[in-house]
Every structure is written in C-alpha cells, then in structure tokens.
Simulated scan of single mutants.
Amino acid sequence: MSWKTLTYFGDSMLLIPTAVIIALVLPWKSDNRQTVWYWVLAFGLAGLLVSISKIMFLGFGIGSARFNFTGFSGHSAMSATLWPVMMWLVSGRWSPRWRVVTIGIGYLIPLMVGLSRLVIHAHSKSEVLAGLMLGFMLSTAFLLSQRHTALKGFSLAQISVALLVPLLLLGHGRVATTQQFLERFSANLAGLEKPYTRADLFRH
C-alpha cells in the first residue's frame, strides 16, 4: 500500500460520506437516541476547528514560524475523529477482546494517515500532531460518552452495504478540493489577492 493510498484514509472525499453513513446507521443500531447527535457534534466540531485554524492562517497569516504551524492537519484530525468510532460501531456485538482489537485498529489508521502526511511533505510535524490530538480527543470523548450504550450487531450483508460507498470512493481515488476552497474563501474574507503561504510565515 502506497503512502498516497494511506493518506486517502484521511481525505474528506472519503470521510464525509462515511461520517454521513455512520449518522444514518446509529439511530438504527444504538439503543441511545442521543448517540447520533453526539456523533454529529464530534465530527462537526473537528471540521469546524480545522477550518477555523486554516482560515486564520490562509487569510490573516496567524501561525507559528517557531513550530512551523499553519493550522491543524485536516487529514489527521478528521481521520482520528472518524475511524475509532467507525470501528466501535462495526464491532458493537463482538466479544470484548475483538472489540478492543478492532477499536485499536481504528486508532492505528489515523496514526498511519498522519505519518503519510509527513512522508509526502503535506504537513509539518506540529500540524500532524495537533490534528491527531484534536481528533483523538473528540473520538475518545464520544466513545466515553457511549460506554453504556448497547449496539445491535451487523450481518455480513449489512457491513458490506455500509462499506460500499467508502470502498467505491477509495477505489476511485478522487480527492476533495477542500484546501483549494478554503484558500479562496480565506483570501476573499481577508480581502487578499492570494492566501498566505508557508513561505510567507517564515518571511516575517
């Protein structure tokens, strides 16, 4: 598996549809009516904080040259928010041992995504670390809030249907244009001809 394939596990083109699938499945599989709202809050908050951090830099140059920080790594933060919850949901009726293993994989995937962002030079270490910390805080807070929630099991057919859209997107390999949108939005918001860049950060 290539680093670009690994990094796609944190791409919005894959994660947003998967997050929607989780939101649609939760009311059906959870005995807690509030579970879906906790999930929407966790994933939405991750996206909001990542976007704000990027807009602050791209539009207003607010970052840290000392830590080489221009905003949270969105791939790291969003994958760290989603995959532990996805694995928790899928393994809902499995034995405790296999649940721990499966949820552990959910925490491992974002670490690999974060590493891939460093390998392909998409982010600095501080941006990846901050993104992972943000995402893991949100997913862990969600899981802790649901520790008394009972989940219904998935049949093989149900798991296949739930994973169909993510697998199709993964196979297609089309990436989201979120960064380009934020660059345009930030520049327009700040009245700039072009957004700030990492080079501008070190020029000041």
Score class of each variant (00 low, 15 high):
L6G: 00
L6A: 13
T7M: 05
F9C: 10
G10Y: 03
M13S: 14
L14E: 07
T18N: 07
I22C: 12
L24H: 07
K29F: 09
N32R: 11
N32Y: 06
R33S: 15
R33G: 15
Q34H: 13
W37E: 04
W37M: 12
W39P: 01
V40R: 03
V40W: 00
A46K: 01
G47S: 02
L49W: 07
L58H: 09
L58K: 13
G59T: 11
F60M: 13
N68A: 15
S73F: 07
G74C: 04
H75Q: 00
S76C: 05
L82Y: 07
V90K: 01
G92I: 07
G92S: 10
R93W: 03
G104N: 11
G104A: 09
L108C: 11
M112R: 01
M112K: 01
V113R: 02
R117H: 08
L118W: 07
M133Y: 02
L134T: 06
L143Q: 05
Q146E: 14
G153Q: 09
G153L: 05
I159P: 05
L164D: 12
L164Q: 10
V165R: 06
L167G: 15
L170M: 14
L170A: 14
G173A: 10
T177Q: 06
Q180D: 07
L182E: 02
R184Y: 00
L192Y: 09
E193S: 13
P195I: 06
P195S: 09
P195K: 08
Y196L: 11
A199V: 14
A199L: 14
F202T: 11
